[in-house]
Amino acid sequence: MVPAIRIEQVHKSFGALQALKGIDLTIERGEFFALLGPNGAGKSTLINLLAGLLRPTSGHLAVMGHDVVTDYRNARRLLGVVPQELVFDPFFNVREMLRFQAGYFGLGRENDVWIDEVIESLGLADKAYTNMRRLSGGMKRRALIAQALAHKPPVLVLDEPTAGVDVELRQMLWEFIKRLNREGHTIILTTHYLEEAETLCSRVAMLKQGEIVALDSTENLLDRAPGKNLRLKLAPAQLPQSLNHMLRGQDGDTFTLALNEAAQVEFVLAELRSAGNKVEDMQLIEADLEDVFMEIVRA
């Protein structure tokens, strides 16, 4: 079966800056995929190339087998993109805007049922006739997602969909996106919230300076994380030399140590005692995707 997304040896330069340095990536149909990376890693560039907003310097990208440059009409029909910024047309209300968007893709009145469904599912029903200008930030975010879905694309790309969104709306959007995935949509997400990727996505690619530095299932990546994090508040705020190799981070007098197993706590405490450190507070935390991410990005 043709994959949802195929990216082959994609390079993108802006003048002297190499934003993407030979990306190879295949995303299968029905996947829930996350693109992670720090600011400037190339996530948005990659998405803009898929969407046809940018053109690759070299290499190929295809949506369900359709090249985004040579066969852009079919590629774009199969792709929905939710942009990162809250952009909107101030002249129209939500329903008008969705009808126009579907119309650009060649769809007419027969698509109204789907538009109603999207409006309903995203909790926009009582705002359907409100001008885009008058919507709150959260409502605009929902409208943007609705707009990307207006032509019922099988592949949906969301660029930081929950940036600046409150907890309640974030939960609601997660549920909605999960439902779309269950119904067969391929979902690609870029996010800063690693928790989001961890709970939602089955596979993750991590980008750093225009290159993929990790590509694996979320499960495997989590396995790469050291078992636990031990957070200690010490007085005096000094770590004995013998524990330095375990240090993951420091914030004032609070040290985070990476443990392979819980039993190491005993060793740590013994070392602290013999060094004369007093433990003022202690927490044992499960390592998460953030730890893997930090480790890979730092490497």
């Binding site: 969407a51 046809g52 907003l53 792709l79 952009v87 909107f88 650009y104 707009q147």
Partner: peptide, 13 residues
């Protein structure tokens, strides 16, 4: 405004 992306994302030639 930035909403030109919604036009550029379409299959319109």
């Amino acid at each position: 405004m930035g909403n030109i992306v919604f036009l550029l994302l379409t299959p319109l030639a």
